[in-house]
Design a protein around this nucleic acid. Structure first.
Lengths: 223, 223
DNA sequence: CAGCGGCTGTCAGGCCGCTGTCAGGTCGAA
DNA sequence: TTCGACCTGACAGCGGCCTGACAGCCGCTG
């Protein structure tokens, strides 16, 4: 999961970053609206946490621009306390959820995860695809009801494929998701993870489309 | 367990603090409504003890603000004796329990623990997970029916794992709940506690998921 | 005040599982 | 058949985690 934190208060931004990281997000952040607008428009995030009071360009303006350009990632807006009018404007601008400042980090995390799940079209902590079940609470995976042990990296890979099980994920996107671009790895690192995962999962689960990327096989209609 | 005491009388606040600490709470306190409102909104408490007569902002107002912001932690309100109108207002504001001043410390402690248990969705003071039983009344732990002695820190760690036994707890979250962020410790401090606990508990109770965190092993299905 | 013992954080050392890299091998597409 | 994308077994390094030792702190005791 890739998250963008747009927040000009360095301390809050840092807290947000660590909180989101601790539940599996890879977090990037920026402090002003201009950069936020650029990043949100060019990069692909699974979640954006957006503070409204920003230097240069107001958060609401940024949000409107994104939506105007057809960007539909879930956006969680941080509003000032009691700023009732901001909420209404936020709704119009296309925010997905709100949190008044100051807020509890746990609540933000809970809402963030709910947003991501909702945006993927599922509401449960248990995500299923065919024989595969991923429990985001226990961070565990089970296959045909049998729990299996996966490493941290394997888990993140599986969870990401699970969330986007309706499309094919390019290797570059997976590398981006697993490592980020600051400490990038060779493509072979990803292939190694895939191989190890397949050894555990068995055939017919994790598929490849040569030249395109990886995907989770749809459940068998028979049996 | 983390508790916030909101009380402007320094002596009462001090007594409350020691009483709650003696039954296992990590206590923070503040003396005016403004700070209380901020703390209750930003920090995560398992219990709040709230006096209504406060400088700056009235306790009821603080409580209403919390609830208005969706904070649902259990709040125990201290009312002046015979001020039954305050109770009615308190109910509307969203208090969970009341205690008229002056009160006996034992009663407050009992109600406080009952509140915490209720909010955790477990009605009993006895929490069980497999062979392990934690008695939050006596602050005692027993293993396979045999009582065992644990230190204060070990107890708090166990009680927290017990309360969240359905998921994996990241080391950062445990550090946060054992120490708070104001006097943070290195991760190794937590590891030391874990090691000492495991030495007492024996194998198969306190598990590790490398890269994720710690958890209580589910009970053995076989006898 | 000195001594003592329990509790706990820090340090240093070590183990071992995880993971990236490498060197091939395999397979599909044109 | 050729090329390149992809797979895979082996291996080494890293780092998460564990643990024994030690010292500081604190309450208790004489």
């Amino acid at each position: 999961m890739r998250a963008l934190v747009v927040e000009d208060d360095a301390r809050i931004a840092s807290d947000l970053g660590t909180a989101l990281q601790s539940v599996g997000f890879r977090v990037e952040s920026c402090a002003d609206g201009e950069e936020a607008w650029f990043l949100g428009d060019t990069e692909d995030y699974d979640l954006v946490v957006l503070d409204l009071g920003l230097p240069q360009v107001d958060g609401l303006t940024v949000l409107k621009r994104w939506r105007g350009n057809g960007r539909d990632m879930p956006v969680l807006v941080l509003t000032a306390r009691g700023a009732w009018t901001e909420r209404v404007e936020g709704i119009d601008a296309g925010a997905d959820d709100y949190l008044p400042k100051p807020f509890r980090m746990e609540e933000l995390v809970a809402r963030a995860r709910a947003l991501v799940r909702r945006s993927a079209g599922r509401g449960s902590a248990l995500q299923e695809a065919g024989d595969l079940v991923v429990d985001t609470n226990r961070m565990s995976v089970s296959l045909r009801g049998v729990p299996m042990s996966v490493t941290a990296l394997e888990y993140r890979l599986l969870a990401y494929l699970m969330l986007h099980r309706d499309r094919i994920i390019a290797p570059g996107e997976l590398l981006e998701h697993l490592y980020g671009d600051e400490d990038a790895r060779e493509a072979n690192a990803l292939e190694a993870v895939i191989t190890r995962l397949r050894r555990k999962l068995g055939p017919g689960i994790l598929g490849t489309r040569r030249g395109f990327g990886y995907f989770l096989e749809p459940p068998e209609p028979n049996a």
